[in-house]
């Protein structure tokens, strides 16, 4: 299996994505901002297709647009009541725009599926480097803001009184989500970023009491999902993304079962 370059690249790419998506996804779930992440990937779709149309790489357009969306959502602030509706409208508009761009670029059908559902086996070596740099950057920033971010997520009013600005912090964090989304799309596509950014953290949260353990577990689950998914895809020839989503769902259900059992035994 590892005699093929594309498999090696795929294992490396999923490793980077799992670490980034697992840890940033953990905070996203903790803050209840999963919808924002979901929407961002759709905005990224318009960016990616648009970029190809003007001759840029899809990853460039994708990242640029997710970052822009992250900035927008962050600046809207947590309290804006109509926020989810605004996000939802931008989300559908973006998919629509993406469709239009595809319409103008007819030989793009294969790329479209790759963008929507991911194509980790097609990740090139140079893309891998970009992903590594983006991922490392996101993780370094996350490490610096992790503590205040946790505090502001759990007790926003108190954090604000202590001099932390939830809005600035929230905006920085949304940009990190944007980077994580752009990376995840490389593996599981625009439509399924939840499978790496939400399922593993949510599973981890069921099992771990402490935040540090939770993040570690989230990364571990994301990585296990991705790597086992790759191996299964290699032997079955079915899409990797399918296996990743299936494993994510199975892990979440199993964790729920474990929690129920241990609670009943007490």
């Amino acid at each position: 299996m590892l005699q093929y370059d594309f498999m090696v690249n795929a294992f490396a790419a999923t490793f980077i994505v799992a670490v980034v998506a697992g840890s940033i996804g953990y905070f996203m779930v903790l803050r209840g901002q999963t919808f924002a992440g979901h929407a961002m990937s759709h905005v990224g779709f318009a960016g990616a297709t648009g970029a190809v149309l003007i001759g840029l790489s899809p990853l460039t357009g994708l990242t640029f647009f997710t970052l822009l969306a992250g900035l927008g959502i962050g600046l809207m602030g947590e309290r804006a009541q109509s926020r989810d509706i605004a996000i939802g409208i931008v989300l559908s508009l973006s998919l629509g725009l993406g469709l239009l761009f595809l319409h103008f670029y007819t030989s793009f059908a294969g790329q479209a599926t790759a963008l929507l559902f991911g194509n980790v086996l097609g990740v090139a070596r140079d893309t891998l480097w970009i992903m590594l740099v983006m991922g490392a950057l996101a993780l370094v920033i996350l490490a610096v803001i992790a503590r205040p971010l946790t505090f502001a997520s759990l007790q926003p009013e108190l954090a604000e009184a202590k001099g932390i600005s939830p809005k600035i912090l929230g905006t920085i964090f949304m940009m990190l989500v944007a980077l994580a989304v752009a990376e995840s799309v490389q593996v599981v596509g625009v439509l399924l970023v939840f499978s790496l950014m939400v399922a593993p953290p949510a599973t981890a949260m069921l099992l771990a009491r402490r935040i540090s353990t939770g993040i570690a577990l989230a990364v571990l689950f994301a990585l296990a999902q991705a790597w086992i998914g790759l191996v299964l895809a290699y032997y079955t020839n079915w899409p990797t993304t399918f296996w990743i989503t299936l494993l994510g769902a199975v892990a979440y259900l199993a964790a729920n079962g474990v929690v129920h059992l241990t609670q009943n035994m007490r």
């Binding site: 503590r147 971010l149 954090a159 202590k162 009491r209 402490r210």
Partner: peptide, 21 residues
Amino acid sequence: LSLSGRDLLIGSVTGSRYGWP
């Protein structure tokens, strides 16, 4: 929250500023 009260307090002390976590 599955976090213990003590961990919550630790988090709020270390989370009141950026940097050393």
